[in-house]
Design a protein around this nucleic acid. Structure first.
Length: 444
DNA sequence: GGTAATGATTGAGC
DNA sequence: GCTCAATCATTACC
């Protein structure tokens, strides 16, 4: 063994910091040749101090030599003594810490957003809500929805990749440190508890890194969310088709442009509002948003129409004419008996007047006995009645005295500024009401 | 850039 | 809870 002589004749190292070792030397446990032993110990310590500077093979050999050194037990005892003293200072640091509330919050959020935990279309509700809010009536929302999901999925992927990396690195490092400590336990006193403690320290360090990752991920999700959800005011105009459908309904129900929940739903579907939603979407949430859009539209329309009827006249004419045409075709193919206000009626209504109009409404009611939502026939009749009202009001042949103009302009709007036909059955009154009063043909 | 149109929001009233 | 009215904020058009 070449190492032995080198160990024995290395330069000395001061022992001032190791009184325990001096004690060993004094009490003769390390031999009788005090100076020589001192030199030995100095050499050993020097070897230990410089071991990291050496190559791996060299260090390995040196380590082996040190382990086999006859002074090793003495050094080990000294180290044990030192440890006895220092271990007191680190005692108490082993108490288990309660779970970090911030970490719990982050975990919960990531779980709620679908970033952490099993992938089940997490965040799709938010995406759908965002898409519905921003895209609104039209086909764009599904695109936005998928865009949101794609980005969320990207975040999720990055998060999991990084998390995996951290965990792997943590495990590797822990294993490495454990091996190192076990190895070192041959030359210095290391208890399994200490190894355990070291492992927990490493885990804490890595978990703090993980927390940073979680925090960054949460921030990314929040930014993504806000970009979609805060865009609620970033409105988009409904597409032309949707607007036409809504307008058609509005002008064909001008006397009572208050669609019921079912009608709104129907309109939403008609307008292709139905979001192309995944199987995991909460449809009730989407539906309520879409219905809200329809309600908003009608609310805006009613007010704006009422405020400036003249401005909407042309539009009203157009839709009225369109409805009349469609009603004609419907009645041509349908039962005449069921359509008292078919275009034929309209044609004969060249001499349409208010009283007739009132009678007509009553007959419509007696026929249908329901609101416009009551059924297809009722809806057709209602549309035709409203159309007739409008067409009549627009025909120049009528004198100013003709109440039709009062009916249409503003259509069904009472002196209080509201549509006279409150959607309550009680609003259906005697046909002998005064001129200008519009009987509710759409009583709910 | 100015302006009209329009979807959304808000607060009051019922 | 719904509607109205006012308003905001954005878009579309010139």
């Amino acid at each position: 063994m070449d190492e032995q002589p080198r160990l024995m004749h290395s330069h000395g190292v001061g022992m001032a910091g190791h009184p325990g070792l001096a004690q060993h030397m004094q009490d003769g446990t390390a031999g009788t040749d005090g100076e020589g032993r001192k030199q030995d110990i100095g050499d050993i310590l020097q070897q230990i101090m410089t071991i990291t500077d050496q190559s791996l093979d060299e260090a390995q050999a040196r380590k082996h030599a040190l382990n086999c050194h006859r002074m090793k037990p003495a050094l080990f005892n000294v180290l044990c003594e030192i440890k006895e003293k220092t271990v007191l200072s680190i005692r108490g640091a082993q108490e288990e810490e309660p779970p970090d509330p911030q970490l719990m919050r982050l975990d919960n959020m990531l779980l709620a957003e679908g970033v952490a935990g099993p992938e089940k279309g997490g965040g799709s509700a938010a995406a759908a809500a965002a898409a519905a809010a921003t895209g609104g009536i039209g086909a764009d929302n599904s695109a936005e929805h998928s865009d949101y999901r794609a980005k969320l999925s990207q975040i999720r992927q990055i998060y999991h990749t990084e998390l995996e990396k951290y965990e792997q690195a943590c495990n590797e490092f822990t294993t490495h440190v454990m091996n190192l400590l076990r190895e070192q336990s041959r030359t210095r006193p290391i208890s399994p508890k200490e190894i355990e403690r070291m492992v927990s320290i490493i885990h804490r360090k890595f978990s703090s890194i993980q927390m940073q990752l979680k925090q960054s991920t949460c921030e990314a999700v929040m930014i993504l969310r806000s970009r979609f959800l805060d865009a609620r005011r970033k409105r988009r105009n409904f597409n032309k088709q949707a607007t036409e459908i809504l307008n058609e309904y509005f002008y064909s129900h001008l006397s009572n442009p208050y669609p019921s929940e079912e009608a709104k739903e129907e309109l939403a579907k008609k307008c292709s509002i139905t979001v192309s939603q995944g199987p995991d979407l909460p449809s009730d949430c989407i539906l309520s948003l879409l219905l809200c859009q329809v309600s908003n539209w009608f609310g805006n329309k009613r007010i704006r129409y009422k405020k400036n009827i003249g401005k909407f006249q042309e539009e009203a004419n157009m839709y009225a004419a369109r409805t009349a045409v469609s009603a004609t075709s419907v009645s041509a193919h349908g039962s005449q008996a069921n359509s008292p206000s078919t275009p034929n009626s309209a044609g004969s209504a060249g001499s349409f007047n208010m009283s007739n109009s009132g009678d007509l409404f009553m007959s419509v009611q007696s026929l249908n006995g329901d609101s416009y939502q009551g059924g297809q026939v009722g809806a057709n009749i209602q549309s035709q009645v409203d159309t007739l009202r409008h067409v009549i009001s627009q025909t120049g042949g009528y004198s100013d005295s003709l109440a039709a103009s009062q009916m249409y302009s503003p259509q069904g709007i009472n002196t209080n500024g509201g549509w006279q036909d409150a959607p309550t059955p009680s609003s259906v009154t005697s046909p002998t009401e005064g001129p200008g009063s519009v009987h509710s043909d759409t009583s709910n």
